[in-house]
Amino acid sequence: MIQDLLYCLKRWRLIHLIGITGLRSRYARSAIGQLWLTLFTMIQIGVTGVVWSLIWGMEIKDYLPYVGLGHVIYLYASQSINESTGCIAAEARLFYNDPMPLLMAVLAHLYKHFIVFLHNIPIIILLLIYGNISSEWHISALFLAPVLIFIFMSSIFLSIVANRYRDVTQVIALIFQLTFLVTPIMWKLDFVPEEYRIFFLLNPMASMLELLRNPLLNMPYSELALSILVGWTAIFTLGATWAYKKYRRHFIFWL
């Protein structure tokens, strides 16, 4: 796996092109192009922010940055992982022509979503300025590494398994639909009775938000979240290593 990773990184140009092509075709003939990405997230956050701050009876100045940051981070992570299930089949032509590690498709897919995430970073900055928050961004930046590794490993595992067993795609999509409800994006973990909080944190998406969002908003974060995320990463790393070994060359027959 490491050898393949190095090979793919050496061919970074290809990762870049495959990743960008997906985005370009989506925004090819619109006047503001990829600004749609940013606009789309902004509107979504704006509307949810206003509506739910009324529902919860919370100050919009506090609530909007909370829900906004949560959305941006959750969208990035969930789309990266959820859509990884189709990423190998999407690049089938690439694999039929030349011998190419399947990791290439995963890397290009993750690269594409990371680019989308970068487009949403200005929103994060705007929200932090709007909320007048003195953020502990260096702590979040530190936690970005374990989060990225988690996304990487789970995507490798799911992309291979879903390539072999196509119904996994549906199962994962379903799981992510439910995950949105049990992840503290619109609501705060404090709303849950204390003895139940740990169960919500067991959800890797929740612990990820705890680690990335809370320091940015200068909110306390649970150190348990880091252990949970590392634990999940370990599980997925084992899964990814196993799946990669088993299907490294044979995935082509299941395309």
């Binding site: 092109l17 370009r24 075709s25 032509r93 039929y96």
Partner: peptide, 15 residues
């Protein structure tokens, strides 16, 4: 080995 089995691979209609 260079395979030219798919010689339009990588081309993007929008570019």
């Amino acid at each position: 080995v260079h395979a030219l089995t798919d010689f339009t691979l990588g081309m993007d209609p929008n570019a």
